[in-house]
């Protein structure tokens, strides 16, 4: 399984900008928002955490459709399925590789983007916590959508339609956590809910994804 993780990371790096591409996309979103809503600092500060969350969602989504599709096209998904690793483990590892290449750089770079959007001081800490706790769920849920649409030629748009509704709880609790943190309110409840959702998703969804892949390969 470690070998699979290393292979996927190596592929992401060799494919050019595995780490950088998500960040560049994030930067563009953050740059475009002030054009849309105006440059006033107080407006930007209010919507900053929401924008950063939406950016994370979209960056995650755009990189997801290839997570299984490439392996499906070159036949390695067939071979991996017959390999001595459980398919659930393969799915989990691929989601982890996806998170390391897109989610983790976002978490690390989020304070810089927060700066551009006038994020209020106390919110920085909570933004990093929220993204750090929430984005793994995005990758795992996304891998479920990718597994459902792996056999389809043009699955990208359909996958967005399938996956985005599943992101609702994570987005709500993640954004709420940052908002409450910024206003100095109690943060336990949204933090617990966010962490709970992520933990449950990591524990359960790989089984659904693996089932979907088996069905698709049949």
């Amino acid at each position: 399984m470690i070998a699979l993780l290393m292979r996927d990371l190596r592929l992401a790096v060799r494919a050019g900008g595995g780490f950088g591409l998500g960040l560049a996309f994030f930067l563009i979103v953050v740059t475009l928002v002030p054009f849309g809503v105006g440059p006033q600092g107080e407006v930007l500060a209010r919507i900053a955490s929401g924008i950063l969350w939406l950016g994370a969602l979209l960056a995650c989504l755009l990189s997801l459709d290839r997570i299984f599709a490439l392996d499906f096209e070159d036949g390695s998904l067939d071979l991996l399925t017959t390999a001595p690793i459980p398919l659930e483990g393969i799915v989990a590892m691929k989601a982890l590789a996806h998170w390391i290449t897109t989610g983790l750089p976002l978490v690390i770079a989020a304070p810089v983007f927060g700066l551009l959007l006038h994020l209020p001081g106390p919110a920085y800490f909570w933004l990093i916590v929220a993204l750090g706790v929430g984005t793994p769920a995005l990758s795992v849920l996304g891998s479920f959508g990718a597994a459902l649409t792996v056999g389809l030629k043009r699955g990208g748009l359909l996958m967005s339609l399938l996956v985005l509704p599943l992101y609702v709880p994570t987005l709500i609790f993640g954004a709420e956590l940052v908002r409450r943190g910024a206003e100095g309110m109690a943060t336990e409840v949204p933090l617990m809910m966010l962490a709970g959702i992520t933990a449950a998703v990591i524990a359960v969804v790989p089984f659904a994804s693996a089932a979907a892949i088996r069905i698709n390969l049949r």
């Binding site: 479920f144 509704p165 599943l166 609702v168 709880p169 709500i172 609790f173 959702i197 969804v205």
Partner: peptide, 17 residues
């Protein structure tokens, strides 16, 4: 199946929100 779980979860998340 997965959608049902998340539909219910979203219902409570939205209530909270």
């Amino acid at each position: 199946l997965v959608g049902s779980v998340f539909a219910i979860l979203s219902r409570y998340a939205v209530n909270f929100w």
